[in-house]
Amino acid sequence: MTDSWTVAGQTFTSRLIVGTGKYKSFEQNAAAVEASGAEIVTVAVRRVNISDPGQPLLTDFIDPKKITYLPNTAGCFTAADAVRTLRLAREAGGWELVKLEVLGEAKTLYPDMRETLKATETLVAEGFKPMVYCVDDPIAAKQLEEAGAVAIMPLGAPIGSGLGIQNRVTIRLIVEGAGVPVLVDAGVGTASDAAVAMELGCDGVLMNTAIAEAKDPVTMARAMKLAVESGRLAYLAGRMGQRRYADPSSPLAGLI
């Protein structure tokens, strides 16, 4: 059985999306992407380095023809800045599929949902396919979907915190209510966190720091690949019910 998922008409087999920030080198980054099995990587849009234009580029190490680049709006605090950034990204790459994030403040990097919704509406009107980073709020998720978001990406915990999924209830409610893919974006710290997201029924997980800041990023990338796969399998298998007390696994009949 091939277990794939589809976002904005594009079908992927890997349910793990990885970032390309914070790595020690492009080589390490490329090796981690390979080990993760990811088919999509997030990238940022920044001014070119005019003082040293000969510097190596990300595209020299991670081939955009083989791996789908998902441009983000990291660092944008208004809808206008995010939309401007993604217009440039579309021109640089030629892709409509983008990751929208509009942040509310630097301390928590929590999303500003009013600006996020505004930016989603503008992007959709301009033909973009925005996958949208958002709070873990089932109502906000619905509003984004109604505005045309092609995927809902609630945070599990603050960006870069590695705290794991803080509110399983709201993530599950978002999954149950959504008609578009739901991916946990941000907050994953280790493999079990990724598995939890998938066991809750998410379509995928997006992470950067959990891999990039591991002591051995390439091994952690592989751990995340396996965790996402096993969490997905557990979700499909349908877990056992939970009981308040013990229930023996061996038969009681025939006891000597």
């Binding site: 390309t20 920030g21 990238v43 990204a89 640089a92």
Partner: peptide, 8 residues
């Protein structure tokens, strides 16, 4: 003038 760089 912008290009793609590493990011999360």
């Amino acid at each position: 003038i912008v290009t793609f760089v590493g990011g999360g």
